[in-house]
């Protein structure tokens, strides 16, 4: 899949390796390091490639240290990659051309971009000047943002006096004043309560829908990703494990489905026959009172369900995909080698 100019973002074989000083514990070792310092290379991103089409909203999944933030920082021009090619909106990000910087934004849930000590509205005004937003448009956008995010009360307060959630609302609003075409969101909802998470999430959805902005999002909260992203990139140890839609991720990485069967309490006892009926003792997760829980290979699901329905007095049947969080855990637990083996299958 060769990159076409219509792509908003193109990443080819991106690598980023950090050089960090090697440290041992203890005073003696530290003293030794005065003389000679050992360094070690830590690959953060180890060769990933992907494209993002204009208007797409893509979620980045991966455990801490997987390389998500590094990738976002490369894409937003803060980091110079070790090797590889990247274009965003037709620009090479780390050249940090004004034309590029004006059209994108990076929001980091754990960092403040608004000045800590001055009222929010003054920071907004500064952004207006820096991004050369025409006065009329600026007023209109602020008004709209104030309504959508309920910022009215917050504008006059210094940022340090805001709660985390309020701060994040202002942070998001301030970062979108210049109507960026590309949004990089690194954990935008981290640490927020559930209501506030939903708030921010809905707002981002609203913004991207209205402006058609291309968005890359990392989040620890699957709810964010499920609500916003049709497509996800799973990255682990700096490598791309999966690129596709969420549903596909589940079929690909979870070879099992869960079957829960409630039996008629009045029915005959099933204890003796149960293992034969299920097909394999390994598939039976639990059998308590009138409820059977099974974990069955995807391909066997239909057969097992049919068999059980035919031979038992069943009150209710539920066949479900495992929760997405569990699947993600499974992916990370498997690691790149297993994942690639699955690819080959």
């Amino acid at each position: 899949m060769s990159g076409t100019p219509e792509q908003a973002i193109q990443v080819r074989e991106l690598r980023k390796t950090y050089v960090v000083p090697e440290r041992e514990g203890g005073l003696a070792a530290a003293a030794r390091s005065l003389v000679r310092r050992r360094t070690r290379e830590v690959p953060a991103v180890a060769g990933i490639s992907f494209d993002v089409a204009p208007g797409e909203i893509v979620g980045f999944l991966g455990p801490n240290g997987a390389g998500k933030t590094t990738t976002l920082k490369v894409l937003s021009g803060l980091l110079h990659p070790t090797s590889g090619e990247v274009t965003a909106l037709g620009h090479v990000p780390w050249q940090r051309e004004t034309a590029f910087l004006r059209r994108m934004t990076l929001i980091m849930g754990q960092r403040n971009q608004l000045a800590w000590d001055i009222p929010v509205v003054d920071s907004f005004d500064l952004n207006r000047a820096i991004y050369q937003i025409p006065a009329a448009e600026y007023r209109e956008r602020v008004k709209e943002l104030v309504e959508l995010l309920e910022l009215e009360e917050l504008l006059r307060k210094p940022v340090r006096n805001l709660s985390l959630g309020e701060r994040m609302k202002c942070e998001v609003a301030g970062s979108l004043l210049h109507r960026p075409d590309v949004l990089f969101l690194d954990e935008p909802t981290i640490g927020l309560d559930v209501t506030m998470q939903r708030r921010i999430r809905n707002f981002i959805a609203h913004y991207t829908e209205r402006t058609g902005a291309t968005t890359l999002l990392t989040s620890h909260y699957m709810a964010d990703v499920e609500a916003l992203c049709r497509r996800v990139l799973v990255i682990h140890h700096g490598q791309l494990l999966y690129d596709g839609d969420l549903a596909g991720l589940v079929t690909r990485f979870s070879p099992h489905k869960t079957i829960v069967i409630d039996l008629e309490p009045s029915g005959p006892a099933v204890d003796g026959r149960i293992e034969a009926l299920v097909g394999s003792p390994d598939w039976l997760v639990s059998h308590a009172e009138d409820r059977l829980t099974l974990r069955v290979p995807r391909s066997e699901t239909a057969a097992v369900t049919t068999r059980l329905l035919a031979n038992l007095q069943v009150a209710d049947v539920i066949v479900e995909e495992p929760p997405i969080d569990e699947v993600i855990d499974l992916v990370f637990a498997a690691g790149p080698a297993d994942a690639q083996a699955k690819d080959a299958r």
């Binding site: 000083p21 440290r23 005073l27 530290a30 003293a31 390091s33 005065l34 310092r37």
Partner: peptide, 12 residues
């Protein structure tokens, strides 16, 4: 002090 020393030595 020990912590300070450890820290400082790292920035030789």
């Amino acid at each position: 002090f020990r912590l300070g020393a450890l820290n400082a030595i790292q920035y030789r």
